[in-house]
């Protein structure tokens, strides 16, 4: 446990357009094995860019211009994620780090059954399995995320949004990754469904021991589910800490402001009128 699973050191990502935009600016953080790390921030703060950088999914004009991302493999050797390419990157992406994105549930192919789509993850990653074994594993995964395995033969449009998002989580779990990056995985869903999925994630984490990088604008949610939380503002990580510490003694004004933005459902309304102005940019 001494080595963090993932460590991001002084990472900088720029969108190299006419006037370059630094979306992620000198960010350092680490994630321990089995930990849920919550990353909070508002639209445009760079939190999604960070997720894409970690999974090496950045597309031009976005490019990593500084820093490193290191990974501790299961044999304790250190891997530089930024050096991976080609086949090794592809393998790494599913088998070590998996991803669930906000709109991911809409990325299911409408003309194939969800069973065959899950089974394809095994096929694409060259696992030596027979067709029957793959189907069996797909069924098992569906049960894992709480969907009846009769649903294997269903097409995506026959499932609700929450179920499709769970299918995506099942696919992410398929190759037993050690980190799952989730970028607003429940934002499009209703609160009751969201709560369901979150509890599911938490339970699965207990079972499989993977770590989660959970990205959302909903700080209230992160406070409930995370082990540690990072707050991002205009590309910088302005504060990190346990939910308890953030809630009780926020160090940065912006953290305080974000906390005040979520009135407690059954508590009192926080004092309003505190408006955070970041360098006068807004």
């Amino acid at each position: 446990m001494s080595q963090p699973l993932l460590s991001i050191n002084n990472l900088t990502v720029q969108y190299q357009v006419a006037t370059p935009v630094t979306a992620v600016n000198d960010v350092s953080l680490y994630i321990d094995p089995g930990e849920i790390y919550g990353l909070a921030g508002e639209s445009g703060c760079g939190k999604s860019t960070l997720a894409y950088a970690v999974t090496r999914l950045l597309q031009p004009p976005a490019a990593i211009t500084g820093g490193s991302i290191e990974w501790t493999a299961s044999d304790d050797s250190r891997i530089d994620i930024l050096r991976l390419d080609g086949e090794t990157l592809r393998t790494f992406r599913w088998e070590e780090i998996a991803m669930v994105f906000q709109g991911a549930m809409n990325a299911l192919n409408p003309v194939h059954t969800i069973g065959s789509q899950i089974a394809d993850v095994f096929k694409d990653h060259g696992t030596r399995m027979t067709r029957a074994e793959r189907t069996a594993r797909a069924a098992e995964l569906l049960r894992t995320v709480g969907i009846d395995d009769k649903r294997l033969k269903s097409y995506p449009h026959e499932l609700s949004g929450g179920m499709r998002q769970r299918v995506m989580i099942a696919m992410a779990l398929a190759l037993r990754p050690r980190l799952i990056v989730m970028d607003e995985p429940t934002t499009a869903l209703d609160v009751v469904v969201q709560r369901n999925i979150l509890e599911e994630i938490n339970r699965l984490r207990g079972e499989f021991g993977f770590a989660v990088l959970f990205i959302t604008h909903d700080l209230g949610l992160l406070l409930e589910i995370s082990d540690r939380i990072g707050i991002m503002l205009t590309g910088r990580l302005v504060e990190q800490g346990t939910p308890h510490a953030l809630q009780n003694s926020p160090q940065h004004d912006y953290t305080q402001h974000l906390l005040n933005s979520f009135p407690s459902l059954r508590g009192d309304l926080p004092l309003t009128g505190t408006r955070y102005v970041a360098g006068g940019s807004r």
Binding site: A18, S48, T55, L57, M99, N109, S116, M168
Partner: peptide, 28 residues
């Protein structure tokens, strides 16, 4: 059928950083 995570990722990239098209020269 090919189904890569790349495909999953792509539809989101435009939405995830909406600020890019604001002020900062995105319009150019």
């Amino acid at each position: 059928m090919t189904f890569s995570q790349q495909e999953l990722a792509e539809p989101d990239l435009s939405k995830s950083e909406p600020d890019l098209s604001d002020e900062t020269g995105g319009r150019r």
